[in-house]
Design a protein around this nucleic acid. Structure first.
Length: 460
RNA sequence: GGCGGCGUAGCCGAGUGGUUCAGGCAAGGGCCUGCAAAGCCCCGUACACGGGUUCGAUUCCCGUCGCCGCCUCCA
């Protein structure tokens, strides 16, 4: 039985999909107005792991993740840079996919762009007006009237009264809105802004409407899982629910939220300016170290991502590579995994990847010990378990090190020659010469290992 | 002010009412090796603080302190 922590229920609940054997999930994707940072990287990896695990567990997964390519921040940033909104959005979206590819994040089955779903949004807004849950302010836009929906606040655990209490202090009160907590579904166009025709005048969508419209359009009524970063619970996801259910639709059944990335104890955010770009982090320590660090932490907890943590994660990955390497050298053949129950049990418990890490490390040690003891059949079985579990988490193990992390620059033949020369020196007990050659190679980024089956090398 | 989360050995980080326990990284000892590297073995009685419940609490309850998130754009 797979259990997950549903934000709306505020508890662990059994996962029962809408259609047996299938999972439909929607995860809020980027608003591409700036470089992706490591916080985005974490969220995307978290849901990639969820997706992969569900698929590994036998579900047919339909994974949708949007791009909100029309939004206030894009308009503002494009104006600053003297670019058109599409130019800016496309450039940052391209960077987003580039980094996700490096991380081994599987592309979504569908990637709806807000600008391509304006008709669906207009239809949803029309339904809300027809239901009496939205109103028009001439020259300003269309607003959702929060007090028409008794259940408003159910996801984030707030009441209308609580929201109104804090609204006075926190929200700029727009005199025209019927209530400060009402939010925009459609914003009237200002000169020079991107705009579409609508029954309520030219304008553009409000921030939340695109996700309601696109998720329902693509995945249909009552789709299974909606995910995103923790900071989207309110107002974004709360408002998505209001828009969908206010118009009479059945929205997502389960809500998954991933914890924030912290920097020295503070949330990483663009407004604080304390962010590390994803590109820089991946360049410094490699994408596998990043993914592993994310996996080492439970997805709902806040976590720190920094150089020290990434370095430690990289070392663990090295250990898996080393196992694959010595398995190859020992001539171990691939076999089917045999004992994945422990892995499945912890993963079924709200995707407890840190516990899964412990399980995998146990197998790694057993595999190594079996190689030491020349019990190759045992080693092969444990190795298969390690690789199967890592594969379910999207972690690639490479027995020659990580070419994606450290691009080979050729020169293999020269290395082989040097290795042969060193072994010749060793054979005649000229260890000074042997060590000199080894040091020379090390200076070139090549490390040697002498094994019972001969010397192997890898680039560091 | 409202809602929520967290405080676990040097660091990171799971978990549980009770004989042995996460796991990783770092440090130390040993085996292996010409020396290394890789690997294996050994080694740390930690659970913020104060009460309470209990035969017994790190784990349950209450309180205190500290940190963090959301309530505003935010992954």
């Amino acid at each position: 039985m797979l259990r997950l922590f549903d934000t709306a229920a505020r508890d662990l609940v059994e996962f029962v999909p809408r259609v047996e054997g299938s999972v439909s999930m929607y995860v809020c994707g980027p608003t591409p107005y700036d470089h992706p940072h490591v916080g985005h990287g974490r969220t995307v990896v978290v849901f990639d792991v969820v997706r992969r695990y569900l698929a590994w567990r036998g579900y047919r997964v339909t994974f949708v993740s949007n791009v909100t390519d029309v939004e206030d921040r894009i308009i503002a940033r494009a104006a600053e840079r003297g670019l058109t909104e599409p130019q800016l959005a496309r450039a940052f979206e391209a960077e987003h996919w580039e980094q996700m590819d490096r991380l081994g994040v599987a592309r979504p089955d569908e990637t709806p762009h807000a600008t391509e779903f304006v008709p669906q949004m207009l239809a949803l807004i029309g339904e809300l007006i027809a239901q009496g849950r939205a109103y028009v302010i001439e020259g300003s836009g269309v607003y959702f009237q929060v007090d028409t929906l008794a259940s408003y606040g159910k996801l984030s655990g707030r009441t209308l009264e609580q929201l109104l209490d804090s609204a006075g202090a926190r929200i700029d009160i727009d005199d025209e809105k019927r209530s400060p907590v009402d939010f925009a579904l459609w914003k009237a166009a200002k000169p020079g802004e991107p705009a579409w025709d609508s029954p309520w005048g030219r304008g553009r969508p409000g921030w939340h409407i695109e996700c309601s419209a696109m998720s329902l359009e693509i995945l249909g009524e009552g789709f299974d899982i909606h995910g995103g970063g923790d900071d989207l619970v309110f107002p974004h996801h709360e408002n998505e629910i209001a828009q969908a259910e206010g118009a009479g639709h059945v929205f997502a059944h389960y809500w998954l939220h991933s914890g924030m990335v912290m920097v020295a104890g503070e949330k990483m955010s663009k407004s604080l300016g304390n962010f590390t770009t994803l590109r820089a982090a991946l360049n410094a320590h490699g994408p596998r170290a990043f993914r592993w660090l994310v996996i080492r932490n439970h997805y709902r907890r806040q976590m720190e991502i920094n150089d020290g943590a990434l370095r430690a994660a990289a070392k663990e990955i090295d250990g898996f590579d080393a196992l694959a390497r010595r398995a190859r050298v020992a001539g171990i053949a691939a076999v089917a995994p045999s004992d994945l129950d422990a892995f499945r049990a912890v993963m079924d418990d709200d995707f407890d990847t840190p516990a899964a890490v412990a399980v995998i490390h146990g197998w790694r040690r057993e595999a190594n010990a079996a190689i030491d003891a020349a019990q190759l059949d045992v080693a092969a079985a444990r190795l298969a378990d390690v690789q199967a579990a890592l594969g379910a988490l999207g972690v690639v193990v490479d027995d020659v090190g990580a070419p994606a992390d450290a691009p080979a620059d050729g020169g293999d033949a020269a290395v082989d020659t040097a290795v042969a020369a060193r072994n010749a020196a060793r054979a005649r007990k000229d260890f000074a010469e042997a060590d000199r050659l080894r040091d020379e190679l090390k200076a070139q980024g090549v490390e040697l290992e002498d094994t019972p089956q001969g010397t192997i090398w890898r680039r560091t």
